[in-house]
């Protein structure tokens, strides 16, 4: 329990640690990308997008079948 409190208090100092690393020029997330894990986000976004596209393909195919059926009955 004590460890948790210490970690919590230490985490409050995080913004000040960040300040110390400030460099010239606008702040960009340069290290964010090089340290990896951004790839996880990109994978998540890509999976969501591909699922949506897959759903659209499914609807499209289903509609094509319905159109064919409609054409044959008329």
């Amino acid at each position: 329990m004590n460890n948790r409190i210490i970690i919590f208090l230490a985490s409050l100092l995080m913004p000040f640690l960040g300040k110390a690393q400030e460099v010239a020029g606008p702040e960009m997330a340069d290290t964010f990308r090089s340290e990896g894990k951004i790839y996880v986000v990109i994978t998540v976004i890509s999976i969501i997008f591909m699922c949506l596209i897959g759903y659209l393909v499914y609807i499209d195919i289903k509609l094509s079948k319905l159109e064919n059926k409609n054409r044959n009955t008329n």
């Binding site: 020029g25 960009m28 951004i38 990109i42 976004i45 890509s46 997008f49």
Partner: peptide, 15 residues
């Protein structure tokens, strides 16, 4: 769009 989702996040941008 998939290409832009990946490259848009990883590609270099002006600071």
């Amino acid at each position: 769009i998939l290409y832009t989702l990946v490259l848009g996040m990883l590609g270099p941008v002006p600071h």
